[in-house]
Structure formats: C-alpha cells, structure tokens
Write a protein that binds this DNA or RNA. Sequence first.
DNA 1: TATTTTACTACTAAAATGGTAGGAATTACA
DNA 2: TGTAATTCCTACCATTTTAGTAGTAAAATA
Lengths: 131, 131
Amino acid sequence: MKISTKGRYALSMMLYLAREYDTNRFISLNEISKQENISLKYLEKIMLNLKKAEFFITLKGKDGGYKLKRKPSEYSIGEIIRAAEGNLEVISCVGDNKCPRKTKCKTYPLWKGLNDEINDYLDSKLLSDYI
Amino acid sequence: MKISTKGRYALSMMLYLAREYDTNRFISLNEISKQENISLKYLEKIMLNLKKAEFFITLKGKDGGYKLKRKPSEYSIGEIIRAAEGNLEVISCVGDNKCPRKTKCKTYPLWKGLNDEINDYLDSKLLSDYI
DNA sequence: TATTTTACTACTAAAATGGTAGGAATTACA
DNA sequence: TGTAATTCCTACCATTTTAGTAGTAAAATA
C-alpha cells in the first residue's frame, strides 16, 4: 500500500510548475531536476504519463519546457497521482466491471469502500493547497 | 497502492475461523487451504505474521489447528491487514518520527492525512461485518 | 511408533519499481 | 546556417518486492 516515487515526483513537478504559474514562462525539466535533485531522465519518463493527461502546454527546443494549462486550483491531487501511477485501485476487482463475482463477494464492499475513501480524499485536495 | 495477497489471504483465513467460531473446534490450515483453494505452504507463512499478533489459540498435532482468541466482533479489519502486511503506511515518512523534515515538508499533511484516512476506515470495520 | 499438525528457516521465480541510455525532432538564437 | 537546449520516444537493466516452494523439527494424538 505505498505511493511510489512516480506519484511523489509527479507531484513535486506539478508543485514546481504551480509555483511558477504566474511567471507564465516555460520551465525545463533540467531546471526542476536540479532544484529538486531528481534524475532528469526519470522525470522525463514520468512526465510522459502526465502529458497524456494533457496537464501542460509544452514547447520543444531552447528556452522550451512545460507550463500548466490550467490554474493550480483547477488540478486535484487525485488526478495527478492517478495520471502518474496509472491507477490507484487497492485491489484489481474494484475497477469498472472487473470482477464477475462482485455481487456475491462478501469482501467486495470492504475494498470498494476503501478505494472510494482514498480517491475521494485525494480528489478533495487541490494542487494549490500545497504550493 | 495495492493490498497484496498476503492481506487478502489473511482476511480469508480470519473469516473462515470467524465462521467456525461457535463450534469451538481447532481448524487446520489444511482444511482452509482446500476450501479456499490457496497453497497450504503460503498460508502457513502468512499465519506466522498473524500468530505474532496473538490472534489465536493454537494446538499442534492431530486434530490440532487454530481458533480465534477473541470474538469475531472484537477484531478490526485494520489490525488484521496491518498484522499480515507489516504496515499500511502510504509513504515511509508517515510512521512514528520517521522523517526529520516533517514539520517543514509541504506535502507531509497530505500523506499523513491519506494514511489516517485509510487506517481509520479499516479500523472502523469489524471481522464480524464480513462473515 | 505412526500420523498429523504447527513452527520455523531457507530458497526461488516472476513481477514491479526505479531507474539509465540513446537518439530523433524541434526551437531559439548567435 | 549551425549549435545548443529541449521535448519526445523506445528500449534496456539492476534491485526490490511479491508470491510462492521446500524441507525439517517439534508437538500432540491415538
């Protein structure tokens, strides 16, 4: 039951971009990598996942980088962690229609409830809350 | 962010013992293994962790096995999962005094809050709720 | 004594995690 | 127009964790 470095580093990057939101400049991963002391290559890889979620405006080349598409208050922590980690399901059967025994299973409500608890909590927190 | 088979199998065993609580007999892992279709040897290993938490009265030898020490309503799901999985910390810094930067860290309250949310939820559910 | 069962330790295969490496495409600017 | 900086993309790899297996000692019963 751990949040991996993928999720934590993703949040670090998002927070970095959030703090620079008002400057309206493109921030390179090189800059974030140096400031946060995380491997550039690993950040690049994690960024691929966040990019798919269309969190950024990006610019390639010199002076390029990333900036947030929306205001920091318009991102929930939940969507960030889910984009970075793939999903947050505590057990594989709680996803959409995953387990055929769902209706009979005695412990399904337990895991489903836990899963909702976690996602609701993270969805209730905003990026702007942790700048 | 997954609950592993350790936790799920542990709960299966505890539920099996809970259903047999009124018979007051010792239940062997061999019986549970066959009924729940889980490897005997793996159940033995998981049982070591639960035993440390003193959940059972045990008897070796023929007609031996395990029975619950307390009533099913006196076990929380939280203590079972924690005993089986070791702990449920979503990130290593949320344990007792683990991270020295705790007070300065912007995201510590986020993870600590999530951790509490998960543990409080599981502690609020009882073994007897899922028999 | 033979059988059944827990108790305990050591080993192992497969999957997930946490990276690294290399290179193509794009952009700014001297 | 050339060069440096940057994103974008794929493949690889070492370590750790997960999910088991194997073997054996100790205890209990009949």
